[in-house]
Amino acid sequence: MESVELIYKAVYILVIFGITLLIATYSTYAERKVAAFIQDRVGPNRAGPFGLMQPLADAGKMFFKEEFIPAKSNRMLFIIGPGIAMIVACMSSAVIPFGDMLIIGGREIYLQAIEVNIGMLYIFGVVSLGVYGLMIGGWASNNKFSLLGAIRAASQNISYELAMGMSIIAILMMTGSLSLREIAEQQAGFNWNIWYQPLGFIIFLTCSFAETNRTPFDLPECETELIGGYHTEYSSMKLGLYLFAEYINIFVASAVMATLYFGAYNFPFMENLREAFSDPVVGNNVVTLIGVAVMFAKIFFFIFFFMWVRWTLPRFRYDQLMKLGWQILIPLAILNILLTGGGILLFD
């Protein structure tokens, strides 16, 4: 690989990393503002204009809290737990195409960190590893509530991964590719997958709520039963890392949903806009930049949706959660695969 290409990739990965952290930081602020709006309150408004410095104040507070490690815990695993949660959360945004390509100085620059032809499997693999951070942390705390939270996290993730994988299979049958860039390119203009896969999208959305441990599926940290669930014993920035990893996971889940079902960086009439410019290079770059903005608008909408649901729906009971996963979502996902197969046979 050329050195220019290498430097570009390194810079791009750093930028995506920074954007991920920034969005996760401000998700904490947005969550409190959305909660305040839904509950008819004001929300954080003291630190800076509109309370915009609130995430920094929160992080500062986290850093200065006492670092506490329980006496009979497994010290090493107790420290590794939040680290795994954070690293795994940051890994998954690598294959997401945040935009099409820019042409700068005759060089084609793709706005995607790594293009592999198994992008979807990569995301799926990384997501399935996320539960280790919770399990290891919960077990190493040597606390019954933490252990119960960890066990809930494990069984919940395994149950919902199945339905999630099956809903993705329907998408893969339609697109015939595992590469996220190719899936994005096939949805050019307004030809988004959501029009063909509404049932698959609902299954995927429900499963991503369960995989990110968000209400109504936040049983691993259910405070009315388990105090704090898997992070009962955690304090200081270790707790901060767990909470932060959750917001990064929400960002990645939103980006994946936008890419798979809502046309990624594509928007209606993009071809007309591209042809409106006399210079094809300028047209391409303008369309790509608008595409990046569109992609992030879609991501922000999904992040808002996660919060909206959190402050609207009550939490499931544990047996209801398992019943929903195994007896409703998985049969629905299989039905969706059959319907998709029938549709492909009939119309293609």
Partner: peptide, 18 residues
């Protein structure tokens, strides 16, 4: 490589740990 991680590291080992 991906399937090995999804199936073994992501699912079977979670059950082991469980």
């Amino acid at each position: 490589a991906a399937v090995n991680i999804i199936v073994y590291a992501g699912a079977i080992m979670v059950l082991f740990l469980f």
